[in-house]
Design a protein around this nucleic acid. Structure first.
Lengths: 154, 154
DNA sequence: ATTAATGCAAAGGATTTGCAATACC
DNA sequence: GGTATTGCAAATCCTTTGCATTAAT
């Protein structure tokens, strides 16, 4: 099972400390991203933001996302394109986690693994590669769907 | 260093054995993918295909790619969006390899890792997740660029 | 006051689709 | 001959851009 607790940094603080101009829109978008219970794409983020302030513009959402990406404050995911070509976003966490996407039910399982951490170290050590971002996504069938599909597993 | 030899399955055989109708276009596209020296996106694939047969259509390229993906004969990569939002494709290899994308020079390093294989096993074992596809992409600075950028590394 | 961020509307790029014509088995 | 695949062109989806306006420091 994946540990449920993944601590998130306070994005707002990070931004002001980096002297990034803090606008109402950014505050709003950041709060939404930080407190999101599921992975949001740009459209979903826009929709949520507009509930609080209908004037938030689509372009602002994209610009804010690219700002946060550039500053390495959020990670971008594809979730194996389980639902079209959109990108999903999440606040960066202290230790990377990987995503298991079930093609059958669409569930996304987050998973932290010491082996993954080791793999990253090896990549640096063996290649001299300085890692900035990693994205490990896995597609397949989750345990529940696998059981449902083949009830006669030994 | 990444091992250079990565054996590729014969896509054409795989297809006919699966009773997929073999058209001239598919033969052409498959051959190109199989013998590609670099990672191709749909547009590049179309361009190469048209050198041999100018009538190959863009839609056919996309349809063939999605067929091959569906049959798990190719892998789809983003290469960390190092060059826009397109997707890249490569014939599936026996053991997965991961991609290191250098943000500075754009080089893509392919890398096979036993640790990665172990990680996949763990995911299956600990989650009961049946893995169909994996995609591990790493973005950062390659050794050469790192050296160039900071010549005074201890 | 200066400079950066926003909204708007239009453009852009990648991918998909409906349908008639064509090629495979 | 029957069915899957293709070409074509238009449509769709996601994202970006130029520019005048507005807001932050």
């Amino acid at each position: 099972m994946a540990p449920a607790v993944i601590e998130r940094r306070a994005l707002r603080q990070e931004l002001t400390s980096k002297r990034v101009r803090m606008t109402a829109q950014r505050r709003l978008l950041i709060d939404i991203i930080q407190n999101a219970k599921r992975h949001l794409d740009a459209a979903a983020l826009l929709k949520l933001a507009r509930k609080h302030d209908p004037r938030v513009n689509r372009a602002t959402v994209y610009r804010t996302l690219s700002l946060l990406k550039r500053l390495s404050l959020i990670d971008e995911l594809d979730l194996m394109h389980i639902e079209g070509e959109k990108h999903y976003y999440e606040a960066k966490t202290q230790s990377d986690h990987l995503h298991l996407a079930c093609f059958r039910c669409g569930e996304i399982i987050e998973y932290i693994s010491p082996t993954f951490e080791r793999l990253k170290q090896e990549i640096g050590a063996e290649n001299g590669f300085r890692i900035a971002v990693t994205r490990l996504e896995v597609g397949g069938t989750c345990a529940r769907c696998a059981r449902a599909a083949a009830p006669t597993v030994p």
